[in-house]
């Protein structure tokens, strides 16, 4: 790193970073690890020197000597490191559950505002869900207790594709219903001409595209583009797919492979969570946001 001054770097923390959240780790833990890494990196750089301590000594009736020396009360050994964990603000723009892995956008410092804007814009996310046919568990994930075993050899790729297509169609119908406009109006027609739209409600999950990318029974992988989803919803989706195929299924992995314009390629792996890499990643993210301005400011309800 060319810059050696910690305050310069500190001021530069005003955007988002894109990290790869590993599975079996909470978002909160990721956040704390990132904060700790940034603070550690900053404290190792050249920090602010201690403030001056003005010392007046001698007899007031005689001559007084005034000396200025660095104040020990401001020494890092006495007051602690210059940058502490509570100083750095950090928030995520998409929450990923405990078992989910993949792209996680974190706003650092003043970038928390950017993260908030991205969150409120509700961009689409793309997930890759791995499932396994034949067993249903109580929490629809692989670590749950098996509650049901079924046969799965009758399930073919055509069955799967047919069901996924109906699911997608029903969601798109729902999408227009929940857009907040009367479906019989002119406005609704104009909106529908633009293509898929985003829902007005932030609570209702909407699936825009769903397809099976790998089918090796009993294992299968589906890719899904959606908005407003959450981990339990995705898990129950796999469970539902299993039931509709006259079998049963549970989820083995959930991976977020894309969040708006940020893909797994941009994401920072756990071993690279150091100040140097975080700053480089932040620059990349700023570049991506410059290329696609609509990620922060959006004008229409159409899906982007």
């Amino acid at each position: 790193m060319l810059i050696k001054d910690a305050p310069v770097i500190w001021e530069g923390l005003r955007s988002i970073i894109c990290v790869y959240k590993p599975p079996s780790v909470t978002c909160e833990r990721v956040r704390k690890t990132i904060i700790a890494a940034v603070c550690k990196g900053l404290n190792e750089m050249e920090c602010r020197p201690p403030v001056d301590f003005v010392c007046i000594e001698g007899n007031p009736s005689g001559k007084l000597t005034v000396s200025v020396k660095p104040s020990l009360a401001d020494d890092p050994l006495v007051v602690g490191p210059r940058y502490i964990h509570d100083d750095l603000k950090c928030s995520w723009s998409n929450f990923l559950g405990f078992n989910t892995s993949g792209v996680l956008l974190l706003g650092l410092g003043k970038g928390t505002k950017v993260a908030k804007l991205i969150r409120e814009n509700r961009p689409t996310r793309c997930y890759r869900l791995s499932g396994k046919l034949g067993e249903a568990t109580d929490n629809a994930f692989k670590d749950g207790k098996v509650v049901e075993r079924t046969t799965w050899r009758h399930v073919k790729l055509e069955n799967m594709n047919r069901f996924l297509a109906t699911l997608q169609a029903s969601h798109q119908k729902e999408m227009f219903k929940s857009c907040g406009i009367d479906l019989q109006s002119e406005e609704a027609y104009k909106l529908a001409c633009q293509g898929p739209i985003r829902p007005a409600n932030s609570k209702l999950p909407v699936i825009y595209g769903i397809k099976c990318v790998k089918f090796e029974p009993p294992e299968f992988v589906i890719e899904i583009q959606c908005i407003n989803e959450y981990e339990t919803y995705l898990r129950s989706l796999i469970h539902e797919i299993g039931m509709k195929l006259h079998s049963s299924a549970h989820c083995t992995a959930i991976q977020c492979i894309r969040h708006s314009y940020f893909t797994v390629e941009n994401a920072l792996l756990r071993k690279h969570w150091t100040l140097q890499d975080i700053i480089t990643n932040m620059e990349q993210c700023i570049q991506i946001m410059d290329e696609h301005e609509n990620i922060i400011r959006q004008k229409s309800a159409a899906l982007q």
Binding site: F53, L72, A73, D74, V78, V79
Partner: peptide, 13 residues
């Protein structure tokens, strides 16, 4: 904290 005393206390220094 110690910061209040450290400029006056020789021991702490």
């Amino acid at each position: 904290n110690f910061a209040a005393y450290v400029n006056k206390s020789e021991t702490l220094q």
